[in-house]
Design a protein around this nucleic acid. Structure first.
Lengths: 70, 70
DNA sequence: GCTAAATTATCCCGTTCGGTAACATTTTGG
DNA sequence: CCAAAATGTTACCGAACGGGATAATTTAGC
């Protein structure tokens, strides 16, 4: 369970998880219905990545996003 | 603790939390350094909202984003 | 070193989003 | 209830960016 404070934090988790699933960016992107460039940038912490696509990728990788009061 | 499956889920939580904090969109947007339009659209679940701005808003409202394996 | 994978670059059209203000909706007070 | 006030949504303009496809370059694994 990781706490996300920045887009970079998010990218890191996604990359880890993708690798753990033995998927290349190309395959993962195809499965999520997005481009490889998006995934590459997302994993590197691009702050302007779109939320909808980001959620899609997370779900594809079996990641659950939760939000709660601090 | 809410599970986020879609941009709409996220928007809902953010709106609730903003209201609980007695902030108008205008004030909240100013505090987060974004435009009112972005916040309005974010709360209504716009899937293309940028992740960086979204995280900023969440943090301003004292929301913690977590991500973990399902 | 060779090969697959990942990052980066380029082209390019569509979209984002801030500022401002008009318009719509919701809330409030009498 | 209804009018006024507050809040939220949207249109407009314009500059800037997103991101898909593809190719080139860099990096990593064997």
């Amino acid at each position: 369970m990781s706490t996300i404070k920045t887009p970079a934090d998010l990218g890191k988790v996604i990359r880890q998880r993708r690798k753990a699933a033995k998927l290349t960016q190309k395959k993962a992107a195809a499965l999520a219905g997005i481009g490889v460039r998006f995934l590459s940038e997302l994993e590197r912490g691009k702050p302007t990545a779109q939320i909808g696509k980001t959620i899609k990728v997370a779900q594809l990788l079996g990641l659950e996003i939760q939000i709660n009061e601090r």
